[in-house]
Design a protein around this nucleic acid. Structure first.
Lengths: 333, 333
DNA sequence: CTGTTAGCGCATTCAT
DNA sequence: ATGAATGCGCTAACAG
């Protein structure tokens, strides 16, 4: 094995040109004659030259990194957002530098600081729940920031997502219009999923407005999952067998409820309606397609990345982009 | 806003010490008296200093980045691996730099080159299907490399995963032992999921050995999903209603099959057994828990990251770590 | 325990 | 169309 990795200087020497010429060829920037470009390319191939981005970043005080800070990867919605981001940057020289906060604002704070130290071109971060320090760092850094998922608060720069409160509200209105009156709610941990709580609040507001309130509600202490939904729905239904519809904090939980109904022989919709949130593939594939609200996670990621990289400087105007949602009729409510 | 970001020099000046002293405090390395450390810390706070890793990386020719190259994030198994990696590095200063290859070896090649340009401490990459150039770059870079998921080939440095061929083989043996003889197979695209194919080959080998062969088999043209499994199982079952067990390429597909049985009133296990692969939560939550093979994705990621960062230099010995798998009895086969 | 010296590899001026 | 000089911000290797 050769001693060190070849540098610009090595390539320049082999090609009989100056370093800056090689640099221009590599970055495909500035005027270069075809002849020298070829020569340089050959030298690069020959030596197996790989540019050192750290040096490049240092010299130009900027990078092609797009920082992405997500609370979790267990919940499929975040990989979906990531796919959207990836779709937007796949054909560009940008690369995603990903951090996972585990829903902890202090972990997030550390990661933001860490991210910033790489001089990213922009940052995508989930939600608005940042520590004071995080906000200060983000604001001071002058890099472009997209706060995604949610549009229920004022962003630092851009917000891309949907109004979870409104989605909850509309879900309830939809169900009320279908004749449901005796609502149950099965949720999961609000501390780690503030958006689930917003949806719940929207739901409750709509019920209030219609002079209704929850017949019963239960929250699983922990992250959402099919098993959690199954277990929690079972408890709720045993305690309040007179509910006529149960709204779940998301589709994972709702599918769990669906499974319990199957096991226990509870006739879905006739006996009790089930309603989720997210519009996951699994819900569509159920024998009775799940009634739910489709959130456009992929789109959120894609639009956020596109908007961010569209303009280098942070504009004075804040931007809020509503990616919306659709009520999916389904067959369970 | 102040003009430029503060640098080590600024902090040093404010604290009345030299740059290297600040550097030592920041990196928590080398002997520093408590008094000066305090002074430096205060200056850092005051100025809101954030280190520039590009400069650090350049000076020390190394970084705290762990490169991770995954084929996709749509398939839950990869986020699971990522969670494992994250668990291993969460309490360390390492950060994951993630690339998604979309199952394309040439995209992978570009990403490897791009990754390498950041001088990562180590790289985790899925599978063994790399281009020649990729292998050369990886080998030449001298950085530590873990090839994960699979242990059915010789790694560059470390392999962490399970033998998919063996898992397939054992699945068939298990089902044969339970009395099944008329096997069906429902799969998805092999081009993008070579491991599914390995499992299939293991299956077939075990059938051969027992003097059996597939009664019928079908593969969905595309990625695995619940809907794909539902649809493909339906076709298979209509064409070969005499199968007594159907093995699916994974749990997503198997759950689709399960749903079709429910819709069509086919009695699972009595009429036809269903068998998956992965051991996802959703399978466990089904009214009849899915019979499947549990792969330990989280563990794969965790062990890979741990092993990689244990020793800085690439050892002369290749290491293969078998994270194994367990047959989950379930109730569908 | 602290400081001095000398780059790391590249891109940004400005020349030519 | 190409090149020379300079420095980005930090750390390794030595002093002391």
């Amino acid at each position: 094995m050769n001693q060190l990795m070849p540098t610009l200087a090595d390539v320049a020497q082999h090609a009989g040109v100056s370093e800056i010429t090689v640099s221009r060829v590599v970055r495909n920037k500035g005027p270069i004659s075809d002849a020298t470009r070829d020569r340089v390319m050959k030298a690069i191939e020959l030596l197996g030259y790989v540019p050192n981005r750290a040096a490049g970043s240092l010299a130009s005080s900027g990078s092609m990194l797009l920082g992405v800070l997500l609370p979790s990867l267990s919940n499929i919605v975040f990989p979906d957002v990531l796919r959207g981001i990836h779709a937007a940057i796949a054909t560009t020289p940008y690369q995603a530098l990903i951090g996972v906060t585990d829903y902890d604002p202090f972990t997030e704070e550390k990661l933001v600081s860490s991210l910033l130290s790489w001089k990213p071109a922009a940052i995508v971060i989930a939600g608005f729940d940042h520590t004071h320090t995080t906000c200060k760092m983000l604001a001071a850094s002058r890099v472009r920031v997209a706060e995604v998922m949610d549009i229920d608060a004022q962003p630092i720069d851009i917000a891309v997502g949907l109004s979870h409160r409104q989605a909850g509200f509309d879900s309830a209105r939809h169900l009320i219009a279908k004749g449901y009156r005796r609502f149950g709610y099965v949720g999961h941990d609000w501390d780690t999923d503030r958006r689930a709580r917003l949806r719940y609040e929207g739901l409750r507001a709509a019920l209030n407005e219609a002079g209704l309130s929850f017949v019963g509600q239960m929250r699983f202490e922990g992250a959402s999952s099919t098993s959690a939904g199954k277990e929690t729905f079972e408890k709720l239904y045993n305690a309040f067998p007179d509910v006529d519809v149960v709204v779940f904090s998301n589709d994972d939980m709702a599918v769990g409820g669906y499974f319990h109904c199957m096991s226990a022989g509870i006739r879905i919709k006739e006996k009790v309606g089930l309603f989720g949130f997210n519009g996951l593939d699994i819900g569509m594939a159920l024998p009775l397609p799940l009634s739910t609200v489709r959130s456009n996670r992929f789109l959120i990621g894609k639009i956020a990345a596109e908007k961010l990289l569209e303009v280098g400087e942070r504009p004075t105007e804040k931007t809020i982009i509503d990616t919306g949602y659709d009520i999916v009729e389904g067959a369970t409510a």
